[in-house]
Amino acid sequence: MSVRHSMVKGMQNSVGYFISTFLFGIMFGVAAAASGLEQWQGLLMSGMVFSASAQFAALEFWQSPLPLGTIAMSVFLVSTRNILLGMSMTHHFDNHSTGRKILWLFILNDPGVVTAIRLDSGIDKLGYITGYGITLMLSWLISTWVGFNLSNIITIADFGAMDFAGPLMLGIMMVLFSKGSAASPIPWIISGIAALVLHEIGLPAYLILPISVATGIASAMTNRHRSHPPKGETRIKANNND
């Protein structure tokens, strides 16, 4: 199948995700307006970043003056799953030029990659994922705009309450990640407990984030070490048994 046809196929298959992306986009628009972003800034962010989790994470620290380091750290940490997504597509894009890959990977997206892996080899994966991404980008941009405009109506009710829209969406994403991932949730729970303790102690956000994540990762590594001991240790144990 040609690149163009694969792209169209990706667009067609993305209809289901178009709706859920649209809803997330509306919530992002509402939350961004509550955080003090101008409409054009919210649209620019959605167009350039194109990542719900990264954008919602950044909004949590959106205050004056903007804590660049903390925002950078949070955006990077929640985006590390993109590294896995990219890795899973290694050698699937070999028939494309490096320039095209660098350009089109801009709209690499979770559902596009997940569904592309299941497709037969006749479909051009990069074209498919790009087609999928174009539709989601369109949905993301339109819904961000709708969210900003909807925030004007919500002002009449209680706009202050919308400050919590960001954490609410992060909670939904947590459930989606948890259900869609085979990884153990224990490191996440430990990271959450560490964050709570550090918050109670009164540490600033730029310290809470890395320390909590490091604690969670340490538990992930310990857990892995216990379930899969290094080969050397296994061999020694086997020899002793002999």
Binding site: P167, A183, H199, A220
Partner: peptide
């Protein structure tokens, strides 16, 4: 396993303090 655990850990580290600062409605 580290790459799989990282995003969830980061989200929890952001989410929990936000929840702690929220009120009963939140």
């Amino acid at each position: 396993p580290i790459l799989e655990a990282l995003p969830g850990c980061a989200m929890m580290a952001i989410l929990i303090p936000a929840v702690r600062q929220g009120d009963i409605v939140d």
